[in-house]
Design a protein around this nucleic acid. Structure first.
Lengths: 112, 112
DNA sequence: ATGATTAGTCAGCAG
DNA sequence: CTGCTGACTAATCAT
């Protein structure tokens, strides 16, 4: 019989494989089918490992994104806090103005 | 010869193993040493798999922590923003007060 | 020699 | 049956 390469064996559909195996020995067919299964498994295993790695990459990236978001939020927070501080200063100045005015009015009404 | 169990074989140091193997056939010794190596490898592989899993767990946990931190920062931000809003209201009221006062003063100085 | 990691193999489960 | 995954083995790398 003609030798069939791993790649060919993997590439063939079961149907085509059966066509190719028409008049063969049953034992021989079994052996070939087993070889096909094994080759497929080899691919599945490689696939499985690759998937494992890419999922780790995904996790790493997600983590990195979250860290960026944290930094962004921290910056935003700091900015807002600064804003609050400035407002407090303005607020204090206005309060001083207000109490000065009230005092003046009081004095005026006292003399009137 | 007496059979030695996997656990025993794994547990023995090379030294003790050699003692035990004093008068043995060289081929037999080689086979036993290979069995020992294989058993050790089995353990290493299991260890490797476990490590892989625990590292994934670590990543997952870190991710979860980061998400918690994000939520915390978001809450903090919202709170501060609210504070800013309230301050803006007070600020606006004070500003109204201030301009009213200034107006009054202006009027008074005009009539005087 | 020892331990860790990778690729291939098989068993066994899921669809 | 096809595809995936856990565990085992052997080969290989590093210490």
């Amino acid at each position: 019989m003609e030798e069939i390469s791993d790649d060919e064996l993997i590439g063939l559909s079961v149907k085509d494989l059966n066509k190719l195996l028409k008049g063969k020995d049953k034992a021989e067919v079994q052996i070939l089918k087993q070889r096909r299964r094994t080759l497929k498994n080899r691919g599945y295993a490689a696939n499985c490992r690759e998937k494992r790695l890419s999922q780790k990459d995904i996790l790493d990236n997600e983590k990195e994104q979250l860290e960026k978001e944290i930094h962004s939020l921290q910056a935003e927070n700091a900015k807002t806090q600064l804003e609050v501080g400035q407002m407090n200063q303005t607020y204090a100045a206005l309060l001083r103005f207000k109490s000065r005015q009230l005092q003046t009015q009081t004095v005026k009404s006292e003399v009137s």
